[in-house]
Simulated scan of single mutants.
Amino acid sequence: MRTTIGYTVESIGYVIGAQGLVSFVSQTFFGTEWGWLHKLVDRPSAAYLGVVVVGLALVLGGVKTRKAPPRQEFA
């Protein structure tokens, strides 16, 4: 079960982080809106860096959950 949760959290983190990065780059360097995150929230460019950090935290949490040693079950 932990492996499934780890992969799921990690996958969600990749999507959130990528969308935050795409939104930041598109607003900062091109002055346009890319991705779908801007359809949910309209934030300044710097706020999207926070979204990238949240995505990275989810990825790291998922990896840590996946690599955690198995628990010992008592009979």
Rank of each mutant, 00 (worst) to 15 (best):
M1Q: 10
M1T: 04
M1K: 06
T3K: 14
T3W: 14
T3P: 08
T4V: 15
I5R: 09
G6T: 10
T8P: 11
T8Q: 12
T8V: 15
T8E: 04
V9D: 02
E10I: 07
E10N: 10
E10R: 07
E10P: 00
E10C: 12
S11T: 14
S11I: 14
I12Q: 08
I12H: 11
Y14F: 15
Y14K: 12
Y14R: 14
I16H: 05
I16K: 03
I16A: 05
G17W: 07
Q19F: 01
Q19Y: 03
Q19S: 12
G20Q: 02
G20P: 03
V22R: 05
S23W: 03
S23T: 05
S23G: 08
F24Q: 02
F24W: 08
Q27I: 03
Q27L: 05
Q27H: 08
T28G: 01
T28P: 07
T28Y: 09
F29Q: 05
F29V: 04
G31E: 06
G31Y: 11
G31K: 07
T32F: 06
T32L: 08
E33N: 10
E33W: 03
E33A: 08
E33T: 06
W34H: 01
W36L: 12
W36T: 02
H38W: 05
K39Y: 07
L40I: 13
L40V: 13
D42F: 11
R43M: 09
R43T: 05
P44F: 00
P44D: 00
S45I: 01
A47S: 03
A47I: 01
A47Y: 00
Y48Q: 01
L49T: 02
G50M: 08
G50F: 11
G50Q: 08
V51A: 03
V52H: 04
V52Q: 08
V52C: 06
V53K: 09
V53R: 10
V54G: 11
G55R: 11
G55W: 12
L56W: 15
L56S: 15
A57E: 02
A57G: 13
L58N: 11
L58Y: 09
V59Y: 11
L60E: 12
L60F: 15
G61M: 08
G62E: 13
V63W: 14
T65E: 03
K67D: 08
A68P: 03
P69S: 09
P69H: 06
P69W: 09
P70F: 02
R71L: 09
R71K: 09
R71M: 11
Q72R: 09
E73Q: 05
E73I: 10
E73H: 09
F74E: 14
F74T: 09
A75H: 03
A75E: 05
